[in-house]
Simulated scan of single mutants.
Amino acid sequence: MIRATVLGLALLGASPALAQCGGDFGTFVDTLKSEATTAGLDPETVDAFFKTVRQDPKVLRADRAQGVFQKPFINFSNRLISQNRVDRGAAMEEKYSDVFDRIEAEYGVNRGVLLAFWAFETDYGGYQGDFNTRNALVTLAHDCRRPELFRPQIFAAMELHARGDFDPDRTKGAWAGEIGMVQMLPRDILVNGVDADDSGKVELASSAPDALVSGAKMLEHMGWRANEPWLQEVVVPDTLDWLLTGASKPRSVAEWQAMGVAAREGDLAAGDMQATIILPQGHKGPAFIAYPNFNVYFEWNQSFVYVLTAAYFATQLEGAPVYQSGTPETGLNGAQMKQLQAKLQERGYDVGEVDGILGARTRAAVQTEQQRLGLPADAWPTPALLRQL
């Protein structure tokens, strides 16, 4: 009964009524405790969960210092993808081949997809973070940047605690509250955790089979389409209308082929499948075709450059060649990107936070302005565009 009640509270946690944040930290914690006991959780369990809770300023600093996502795709991917990670990925694929066989049979998620996440999230389990997870979640829920994301995770963590699967004082992970080898939040663990090695417990920090199968189930829950591709490098003609490109502009594969888009290696997906053309550094840089499963990546991580790098690395781990960098035009540094975003805001565009990160809304605004100014509308901002604005 307690478990169902707390889980119900966790599922309600994203509602506006529960999205309070800020104010005195102690008072905020008292509010959380009151909500948990009102929902039916034993007061002693609640007190034990929050007994040593504290606000963690290191979590807030980490949340504010994500400058790595300002890097362009080529620089970012070169930083994350190393020969060591490629080699270790091959070794892990061989070591856990039976687990990946099971994942592909049950969930239709390719092994490369899980290997890439495993590599990027924790370096194949080697470093899973040393932040106290409870403190991180409560700190981020108290902070008013994204309380709707983190507040429900606190109640999910209490549910895990009630099950005996979460130690408030000892469970550690990433600064944003993710736990285990593929870094899953408590709610995702509740819904998608799998005891794949039949140990009797879901142990995402110590069991690779549990972590990998749970990650695959989570992707399925997010909408992964079984046994379908997600990304592929392509060659695009110079005559392509660049305004048609972008992650929000799907067309059928057959239509792209009719315009001269071709796979760099192998064949494109079926002609009736919807796909987008992504030019992360403009029409002179790398080019990819993204299929519907690519969009699921954004349910895992919302950074465009991270998602594209993870999706590409998954293809590389399955045999795709190193992508062709091309000769992209010089882009903007972080300060220039913030200046660009501010100028776009002045012109009425919603680019979100002025953070120096080239996200989806900034790309869309850039593409519109490029078209207006007679520049190649490839969504890649350059100093020339900034000068004209």
Rank of each mutant, 00 (worst) to 15 (best):
R3V: 11
R3H: 14
L7D: 14
A10D: 11
L11V: 09
L12F: 12
A17N: 10
T27C: 12
D30E: 15
S34V: 12
E44G: 11
R54F: 10
P57E: 10
S77R: 07
S77I: 00
I81H: 02
S82A: 09
Q83G: 11
E94F: 09
D98A: 14
I103W: 05
Y107C: 03
V109G: 02
Q128I: 08
D130N: 15
F131H: 12
T133E: 08
V138K: 02
A141Q: 05
H142V: 04
D143N: 15
Q153Y: 08
I154L: 09
G164H: 10
D165S: 14
P168Q: 10
T171N: 09
I179L: 07
V194D: 03
D197R: 04
D198N: 15
D198F: 11
A208W: 02
S214L: 04
H221C: 10
M222A: 14
G223N: 10
G223F: 07
A226F: 06
E228F: 09
W230V: 00
L231F: 09
Q232D: 00
P237H: 06
T239D: 14
L240R: 03
L240K: 00
T245F: 07
A247W: 08
S248D: 15
V253P: 02
V253K: 01
Q257Y: 00
A262V: 10
L268G: 01
A270E: 15
M273E: 11
P280S: 05
G282A: 08
A287L: 00
A290G: 12
Y297R: 02
N301Q: 09
Q302A: 14
A314G: 06
T315D: 00
L317W: 00
E318D: 15
T327K: 13
P328T: 03
G331P: 05
L332N: 05
Q336I: 03
Q336N: 07
V351S: 03
V351P: 02
G352C: 09
E353A: 13
D355M: 03
I357F: 04
L358N: 00
R361M: 13
E369F: 00
Q370I: 00
Q370H: 09
G374E: 09
L386Q: 01
